[in-house]
């Protein structure tokens, strides 16, 4: 039966039902559509990543750890970070990781403003040393996390990952993306300003 045949008295009922059906359905679909559009747009600019782990490390003191030396640097431990009087960037890297190698250039520039301490993650010492010899060494100190166990205490899920440590040993900023991205560098600069670096 088509709508033309509906008597006029029923017209209000029909309109009410149209709203009753249309508003939740189209509203729901519309909200989902907008959300997906925002997600896609955010993924394009890098501002949204649904697969970020967001390990809850910022605002916490550095975990307890001791890292042995990794040539050509010297290792470090929790106490070294707590004794700091100026901010330092901790960077987990590995010679087998292509994004880490891509990030080296940016790290070499950055170390002129901010000391960077490196952690070689699950890497053979000779391979890590070889990478730093080849690509340049941005690190003031370097520790070796051969088994990857210290990384777990830091909430690291892959390399590269970077942490900004404020004087006193507080983690104030964390990124699971490489510092070769300008967005990540900007966000680091803002965090650095906030701690007066």
């Amino acid at each position: 039966m088509s709508s033309e045949q509906t008597p006029p008295d029923d017209q209000n009922v029909v309109t009410r039902r149209r709203l009753l059906l249309g508003v939740p359905l189209l509203g729901g679909a519309g909200i989902c559509g907008v959300a997906f559009w925002k997600m896609l747009a955010g993924m394009q600019t890098g501002s949204f990543n649904p697969h970020d782990i967001n390990a809850p490390v910022t605002g916490r003191p550095v975990p307890d750890f001791t890292l042995p030396d990794q040539t050509p640097g010297t290792g470090f431990a929790t106490a070294d970070l707590k004794a700091l009087t100026r901010p330092v960037l901790i960077n987990f890297f590995a010679s087998w990781c292509i994004p880490c190698i891509a990030e080296m250039e940016a790290l070499l520039t950055l170390q002129k403003q901010l000391p960077i301490w490196g952690v070689a993650y699950k890497d053979k010492p000779e391979n890590a040393a070889g990478l730093l010899k080849h690509a340049g060494n941005p690190y003031a100190r370097i520790g070796s996390d051969r088994e990857g166990r210290v990384a777990i205490d830091w909430g690291v899920s892959g390399v590269p990952e970077s942490f900004l440590i404020a004087p006193g040993g507080m983690i104030v900023w964390h990124s699971a993306a490489g510092l070769d991205s300008p967005e990540v560098r900007d966000s680091l600069k803002n965090a650095l300003k906030a701690v007066g670096g």
Binding site: C97, I98, S157, G158, V159, G178
Partner: peptide, 10 residues
């Protein structure tokens, strides 16, 4: 695996 992490290479 996540591309970002370089684990992909491994």
């Amino acid at each position: 695996f996540r591309l970002k992490t370089g684990l992909l290479l491994v």
